[in-house]
Amino acid sequence: MPKLALMVMLGVGLLLDCPAPALANEELVLIVSAQSNIDQLDSSLVRKLFLGLTVNQHGDRLRPLLNESDAKIKDLFLRNIVSMSDSTYDRYVLRLSLLQGRQQPVVYKDKNSLIHAVAADPSVVSYVWAKDVVNNAQIRIVRVIWHD
């Protein structure tokens, strides 16, 4: 019995000591350049922005950048920002160019390039994992889009 108790305690200890699961405390955040004048953007404005409609703040026209650096971010973007399925959103942005000559949002597959692009342009808005920008002085977090 003492041997069993020891094994249970050891097992619990190992569990407590092991690294957190990949998703624990993950946060997807909306980011802008630290030099940007962009204030808090409510969810309806963020949705309009990423659906290609015009969103201005302080006289600046905001530009959305799509983060497709990993599949989970894309999935969270579709569910929490635009509320559309992948195929519906794809058709929607294709329609933009046909209907009003609007350009589709620029897509980034590499998160470092995306973060550099956001840092360099005060009119740009995008979204990344919080852990990727939390210590980056060139980036400001505007809001949390999703957390686990």
């Binding site: 950048l65 294709l94 160019s97 350009q103 620029v106 597959k109 590499d110 692009a117």
Partner: peptide, 11 residues
Amino acid sequence: AEHEHSSHEFE
């Protein structure tokens, strides 16, 4: 194809 980023004037 995995492009770093993409923007298109043409469709």
